[in-house]
Design a protein around this nucleic acid. Structure first.
Length: 472
RNA sequence: GGGCCUGUAGGGUAGCUUGGUCCAUCCUUUUAGCUUUGGGAGCUAGAGACUUGCGUUCAAAUCGCAACAGGCCCA
């Protein structure tokens, strides 16, 4: 059975690099580092993920906006920590035609500084609040490190929700909602995850606190696929986002943001894929079912008719189906669609037509199964559901088997994946552990974080658990 | 931020050490035609490449420098 040249378990990085192009997600040959081309198949997949996000946003009363790509330097410079965090990685526009600009513009690395001066104009009264907005746009960050398709890029396909609230408590309620949104979304992508509260020195530039959403890739490294930030009034003050209260006083807004990117695709690839290619959860799969007519000379008619009938039925049921009638051998087609991760393949050949059956094969387990044509839609739905459960269970197993809580650095060193250790709250102690484990701090668990064991570095009584992992 | 490696058709490669034998090898791909078709089909005739710039030289895919791009490792 042909498989990828590089096995996922042997060299995850190579496998990943190979698979994203083989599966037609992206084309990495564009000659600017970190700026890849979305191929049609990959873009459909991304759009399906975006659609889920949009649905969630609309369900939770966020409104979609679209701010300009360019930000004047003066807007960008209002919040100091933010500049410090992003200053080194912005692209600048200095010229227009042959003229040098009086004020430089930058390509948004994220949109706070584009939006907030405008929010300040939009928000006058407490009745304007909460303001819940989001946009799905491209952002730009000048990565100097090694780039990697969907995981570290310079042009980022970015979802960002920005909300303004009357006070800290209302912003906290928003964060609770964001966590619920993340949960529902990642369920649909069959991606188990962990929330961690980032340590002070690793939070988003300008935030009061940051909650990261991480998944575990099969390589044992974590991938941060989203973050939720509580800004308190850190941005509202410099950007003067204030409102008049019911009592006629003036107060600053409290803000939150929630961001995700094409890293979600990276996670889908890295978590579910195998040596034959991708396995895409049906919820976002560009094609959920591919029908392959097995054509023999003289018997084409029945086979093609049966395929066409089934295809129409599936479309009618809202199932994304496709008939692969290319003039090539069936085996060729199987390999193709397996690479692309189509969850279910249906074969219809002369023998099937004779028996009024179809043959179906789930992408994750590759076992053939015959079902009567008349029950096709139901059987196909059930099979897709079964695939969802299996790939979720596999991903959950991977995460559970690679999450550990231990008391000493020596024990931690033996473990793979995410390791939690008691932490006294001192930055140096956490950095020392980072050194020993050759990993990074992920953050504290957001629930059941209390820990009273001694800090493995200084011996002081710990305040919380601190998670460490090698990450992308 | 530091170190190491790589760049030849759409993809993968041979040639590079010791410059000339190379209008560049093989596999895949691709076009036309015929025969095929239940796990990567066969035959016939075509198509397609030395990353870019500068330098060394009578002569550069081959040597040197730089840029760009790709990959790996460490902070």
């Amino acid at each position: 059975m042909p498989e990828t040249k590089v096995k996922k378990s042997e060299d995850f990085n190579e496998w990943y690099n190979e698979i994203v192009e083989l599966a037609d997600l992206c084309d990495k040959r564009y000659p600017i580092k970190g700026m890849n081309i979305w191929r049609p198949y990959g873009w459909k997949l991304m759009n399906n993920v975006d659609r889920l996000i949009r649905d969630e946003m609309i369900k939770t009363n966020h409104e979609e906006v679209c701010f300009p790509l360019l930000i004047p330097e003066s807007f960008f410079k209002k919040e100091e920590e933010h500049i410090e965090g992003f200053g080194k990685e912005v692209f600048w526009v200095t010229h227009a035609g042959i003229n040098q600009l009086e004020e430089r513009w930058l390509l948004r690395p994220t949109s706070e500084t584009a939006m907030y001066p405008i929010f300040s104009l939009w928000i006058r009264s407490h009745t304007d609040l909460p303001l819940k907005t989001f946009q799905i746009v491209n952002t730009f960050r000048y990565e100097t490190k090694q780039t990697r398709a969907f995981i570290r890029v310079r042009e980022i396909h970015f979802f960002e929700a920005h909300t303004c609230h009357v006070d800290f408590e209302d912003a906290e309620r928003q964060i609770k909602e964001d966590k619920e949104i993340a949960h529902r979304l990642l369920q649909k992508l069959c991606l188990p995850y962990v929330f961690s509260k980032r340590p002070e020195w690793d939070k988003f530039a300008g935030a009061y606190y940051t909650i990261s959403i991480d998944v575990l890739m099969s390589s044992g490294r974590t991938l941060q696929i989203g973050s939720i930030h509580q800004y308190r009034d850190n941005f509202a003050k410099p950007y003067e986002i204030s409102y008049e209260t019911e009592k006629g006083a003036h107060a600053f807004c409290h803000q939150t943001t929630y961001g995700m990117s094409e890293r979600l695709l990276g996670a889908l690839v890295g978590v579910h894929g195998d040596n034959k290619g991708l396995i895409i959860p049906p919820e976002v799969a560009p094609l959920q079912v591919v029908i392959i007519p097995i054509i023999f000379k003289g018997k084409e008619k029945g086979v093609l008719e049966a395929s066409e009938t089934l295809h129409k039925k599936l479309l009618h049921e809202g199932i994304r189906s496709h008939i692969d009638d290319r003039e090539t051998t069936p085996g060729n087609k199987y390999y193709d669609w397996e690479l692309k991760g189509v969850p279910l393949r249906v074969e219809i050949g002369p023998k099937d037509v004779e028996k009024n059956e179809l043959t179906m094969v789930r992408r994750d387990i590759s076992k053939k199964k015959s079902v009567p044509l008349k029950d096709a839609e139901k059987a196909i739905q059930a099979e897709l559901q079964a695939l969802v459960q299996t790939i979720y269970a596999n991903a959950e197993k991977l995460l559970n088997e690679n999450m550990h809580s231990v008391l000493t650095a020596e024990e931690a060193k033996e473990k793979t994946g995410i390791v939690a250790l008691p932490w006294c709250g001192n930055k140096d102690c956490a950095l020392e552990i980072e050194n020993v484990l050759e990993g990074n701090t992920l953050g504290e668990p957001i629930e059941n974080a209390v820990c009273t064991d001694p800090c493995p570095v200084c011996g002081a009584r710990a305040k919380t658990w601190m998670r460490f992992a090698k990450s992308y």
